[in-house]
């Protein structure tokens, strides 16, 4: 748990609004570290800059100042270095499930035969056997999320950025997907950074929680979750956890300190 896989060093970032000719600050001199095989959740109000953080990590945006290190290295372009699962499932409607999942391998120039050998068993493991030749619109929301996650895993990166993957799912599907995700996290030996609106989800899943409370984020609040693994839903009724939950909710509403 000591190797750093991701580091923000004094990163500042703002969007330039072309029409109104002003800038929207999102991050101000922000630093943090993420260690190998951690599960981090990021919570924050809508518009607080969570997705922007991912866009920065993935290399879709460049910081105005400061640097972002991936696996200890400072890349010229971070594109292609992380596995990014966007807020919507964003499957290509013209590709079958198998072809959708295989996209990152195709982009890296894998041969058809090798792709098949790699993807087939994973489709099975992700509960997608039998639908590999279907098209995305023929699948349920939970299944589409699994395809999208499989595609993210196949990016081959050790850092997986998951932007509200379960927010569109019903409570029961969500619960089984959460269990399944933890299982995959363990198997893939990955580091996961996970955005959510849902405090309960954050408590159930993560080692540490980063909270976007104020804007711009000068000092991001950081809380460790005082629970061992494996966790069950009723562990969340623990008094210490309940107190933490109240604290988090208060911070999200902007009333810092309880």
């Amino acid at each position: 748990m000591s190797k750093q896989v991701l580091a923000f060093q004094d990163v500042s970032f703002s969007y330039q609004d072309q029409q109104q000719n002003r800038s929207i600050p999102v991050l101000h001199s922000f630093s943090t570290q993420v260690y190998d095989r951690e599960f981090i959740t990021i919570i924050g109000a809508s518009g607080s800059g969570k997705s922007t953080l991912f866009r920065l990590i993935a290399g879709l945006e460049e910081p105005d100042s400061g640097s972002i290190l991936i696996n200890g290295k400072k890349y010229k372009s971070r594109l292609g270095q992380t596995g990014y699962m966007p807020q919507k499932d964003l499957l290509m409607p013209w590709r079958t499930i198998e072809e959708n999942a295989a996209l990152p391998l195709e982009l890296r120039g894998w041969r058809k035969k090798d792709i098949e050998e790699k993807v087939r068993p994973l489709l099975e493991e992700f509960g997608l056997s039998g639908v590999e030749d279907h098209f995305p619109h023929e699948l349920s929301g939970g299944m589409r999320q699994r395809v999208s996650f499989l595609r993210t895993v196949l990016s081959g990166s050790n850092i997986l950025l998951l932007d509200e993957p379960f927010s569109a799912l019903d409570a029961i599907t969500k619960l089984s997907m959460q269990e399944w995700l933890l299982d995959q996290w363990d198997k893939r030996k990955a580091t996961i950074i996970f955005i959510t609106h849902d405090v309960q989800e954050a408590l159930l899943l993560s080692d540490r929680i980063l909270i976007f409370a104020e804007k711009p984020v000068c000092s991001l609040q950081e809380v460790a979750v005082p629970l061992a693994r494996p966790r069950r839903l009723k562990d969340l009724d623990d008094p210490a956890v309940l107190e933490l939950k109240d604290h988090l909710l208060a911070q999200l509403r902007g009333k810092v300190g309880t």
Partner: peptide, 14 residues
């Protein structure tokens, strides 16, 4: 072509 898919492909190193 969707801008979001375009960006997603970029993050895969396309």
């Amino acid at each position: 072509g969707s801008r979001e898919l375009n960006e997603l492909m970029l993050t895969m190193g396309a």
